[in-house]
Design a protein around this nucleic acid. Structure first.
Lengths: 281, 281
DNA sequence: AACTGTGAAAACTTTCACAGCA
DNA sequence: TGCTGTGAAAGTTTTCACAGTT
């Protein structure tokens, strides 16, 4: 119904976004990660089979996913790693990078500012805010924590495209409202509550406890089928369990990672501490 | 295949787990959160409509989801909050609580130990380990960081049911292997790489960057349709946008949260800093 | 020969709409 | 009357299998 004009010279992502299934979008992000890894290792061409294995999906699904972006590969050959990567970034709207503003300088907020996985994937944290006078003015990973009251000014000045909410539960809706009022259109919240926002604003929520609960469920289900596998419960097991990672195509050394046997991954993947799990004391 | 005996007096979750769809399991965790909120507010009975709205799904879906757990409500009346809650916890295997061991005492690891949302939902962090000599021995939220080398001993002693990996990318597989060798069956990883583990071990991965990338995609899609909504980009917008949160059934005060208009939530929801976004200095 | 791109089938999820119960 | 529980319809996602290209 909202059949607006097609914006001839506007966005770069061509005209296909419209029909890309949600599920596919989530996986595109995963493919991007694998492609980055391959590129780092100097791999120039991948087949759908190799890429699929490395991403933990089957190759038909991967090809179908990519087909939504138009033709990307060469039949009989495979996909050009660099080209495919650029194409996916373009479609996901990542080509120009994103400026991220973080509200909530608690433990989680600080973990995220320092989080190298963001910068590496084109997300730059440009500002961090909090409401606690104790915290305002303190430096966090090269940024100074500003007062949430300054939010409109900060937004005008920093021009973020994405906001991340890491404040407690009961402050989340208020922060969300302020972000919306300041003109932000994309919000990622870590607060365990639904947030109300106008339909034009995209809000996503990440709930760590749900992941744990799903794990709990799977374990219960498994426990039901196999009485008790009698696990090695003590001792000094070093590395153990180097599984037989052998598929038909040994492929490039970069594809070592591959062959997820049971991983139920739904979407994202974080990169915790930046280099060596060092606690900055 | 693997048609073992049914363990007569073992688990409490009845015999239904088997056929509960994945998508339903993810939502059960959400319902649980809402039910806890209602219980806190003294609500004793909810209708599917109220609960659904508060959880951000439609009521038919909610009823279908609950129907997989057997009859839970009373026709013409609704669901008993306490009873339903207990039933879901039982099915998800949460009734006995979970003991969680955390590997990686970096920023993210520390954010999670302190994270009240876990304890409140039945997950107790019983141990935290790292490989960095700088960090080993330091206290974190009431626990002392132990050496990963001690992992088998720590596992034998603490008897965790779930492990969380918050170490960097390149250490993740090694840690995973050690956890498996120590007998852990459920692993939640924040490292942005696929982990290889035996099929009997359940591994889930959370990737924060994927969530951001999905946000990015949605924004691009929206931007394409609406030329430019001309957002209020500066000024001093205070709280603004108190949306018209009016549905037909005003219901209990506890149901304020409700009415998510566009939230694309897929699963979990975190609760960042424990009380007031205070940075423990 | 090798590998992509894709229609068509199968599987899964959501929504509808109403029978059945308090 | 009011609300749950559920079969059957509609919609979405995954998988299959093969035609098409280099």
């Amino acid at each position: 119904m909202t059949e607006q004009h097609e914006a001839p010279g506007g966005v770069s992502g061509r005209a296909l976004q419209k029909d890309i299934p949600q599920a596919t979008v989530a996986r595109l992000a995963t493919y991007l990660r694998v492609l980055a890894m391959l590129a780092d290792d100097g791999v120039a061409i991948v087949s759908s089979e190799e890429l699929a294995v490395a991403a933990g999906v089957n190759s038909a699904k991967l090809r179908k996913d990519l087909s939504f972006l138009g033709p990307n590969g060469v039949r009989g050959v495979g996909y050009d790693v660099a080209k495919l990567r650029a194409r996916i970034e373009d479609v996901l709207g990542l080509s120009q990078g994103h400026r991220v503003v973080l509200v909530g300088a608690g433990n989680l907020g600080r973990a995220l500012v320092g989080y190298g996985g963001f910068r590496r994937r084109g997300f730059t944290v440009v500002g961090i805010l909090d409401s606690d006078p104790e915290v305002i003015g303190m430096p966090v990973a090269g940024l100074v924590v500003r007062d949430v009251a300054e939010l409109p000014a900060a937004v005008a000045e920093l021009e973020p495209t994405i906001a991340v909410i890491t404040v407690p539960d009961d402050a989340a809706q208020d922060v969300c409202d302020r972000l919306v009022a300041s003109g932000l259109q994309s919000i990622l919240s870590f607060a365990p509550c639904e947030l109300v926002a106008p339909a034009t604003v995209e809000v996503r929520r990440v709930d760590l406890a749900v992941e744990m609960q799903m794990l709990s469920f799977e374990r219960m289900r498994n426990a039901e089928q196999a009485p008790l596998p009698e696990v090695a419960h003590a001792g000094s097991g070093r590395i153990a369990h180097r599984l037989p990672t052998s598929h038909t195509a040994p492929a490039h050394p970069a594809l070592q990672h591959a062959t997820t046997p049971h991983t139920t991954t739904s979407h994202t993947a974080t990169e915790p501490s930046s280099k060596g799990s060092v606690v900055t004391p």
